[in-house]
């Protein structure tokens, strides 16, 4: 992407995340009966999900681009974005589990959203497994791109449509009030939206580092292969 190599968005990420963490730990939040201070987790738990969806969406877009272009670069990017998305998914599950323990009294209450997220993670773990089961790079890229697109379209109904059809403990589901009703003076919103942007940028940053590491690894492997070819060629010449 065009702005990848620039520094300004990394500086922006750091500033936003500093703001989010300070506001998250020290800012004023509405006092609520059961939630109490745990409402601060909104910036860290809830913001993980838009981040994960965005990263997985970008991963799927690169998978589509790969199928159209057959350019390995697109596949590398797709895989790196998917991995970052999985990371944020796991973090979302963990932070949610912690929050659930203090508000709903159980680390893993039986809730369609939790189970949907867990199954979604399974789908993407299977993606990683699928990637690792191919030796040939072109083949791996093509088949995992197909699976990636398929997985995304199964994943979306799993976490957006299904929980809405059943009762859920989560706000905005099954007759529960949404968070916006607690947010009378828009204080939460002032931090929540920057938090989402900050985490998405952080995810992109992680992705770009992974991607560039991958490129370096590939170049090095090619160089080693080239060297060994030259070496063998030279040895053969001496023998002849």
């Amino acid at each position: 992407m065009f702005f990848m190599k620039k520094a300004w968005w990394k500086i922006l990420t750091v500033i936003i995340l500093y703001y989010v963490i300070f506001q998250g730990l020290l800012g004023t939040v509405p006092r609520q009966p059961i939630l109490n201070e745990t409402i601060r987790n909104l910036y860290f738990h809830v913001a993980m999900w838009p981040t994960m969806i965005t990263l997985l969406l970008v991963s799927m877009v690169f998978a589509i681009r790969y199928l159209r272009s057959s350019n390995t670069v697109d596949d590398d990017k797709s895989a790196a974005f998917a991995k970052a998305g999985i990371l944020f998914g796991i973090l979302g599950c963990l932070s949610g589990s912690l929050w659930a323990n203090y508000t709903w009294g159980d680390f893993w209450p039986n809730d369609p959203k939790l189970n949907g997220a867990a199954v979604g993670m399974l789908i993407y773990f299977a993606y990683l497994l699928l990637r690792s089961s191919f030796e040939d790079e072109q083949r791996r890229a093509r088949i995992s791109a197909v699976y990636n697109i398929f997985a995304f379209f199964v994943f979306i109904p799993l976490i957006y449509v299904l929980p809405r059809l059943t009762d859920s403990l989560h706000p905005g589901n099954g007759g529960n009030a949404t968070f916006s009703s607690l947010d009378i003076d828009n204080n939460l919103r002032m931090v929540f939206y920057p938090a989402c942007i900050g985490w998405i940028l952080l995810g992109t940053w992680i992705t770009s580092i992974r991607y560039r590491l991958n490129v370096i690894k590939r170049v090095q492997e090619e160089r080693v292969a080239e060297l060994s070819v030259n070496h063998h060629g030279a040895a053969r010449a001496v023998n002849d």
Binding site: V119, G120, I123, A126, L130, S133, F134, R139, I143, A151
Partner: peptide
């Protein structure tokens, strides 16, 4: 998809169970 990989019967189960859920 699974038929393209080597260990396809195991992969079939792993790929399809969460997909079908």
């Amino acid at each position: 998809i699974a038929s393209k990989a080597e260990n396809s019967s195991m992969l079939m189960a792993v790929l399809s169970f969460p997909m079908i859920l």
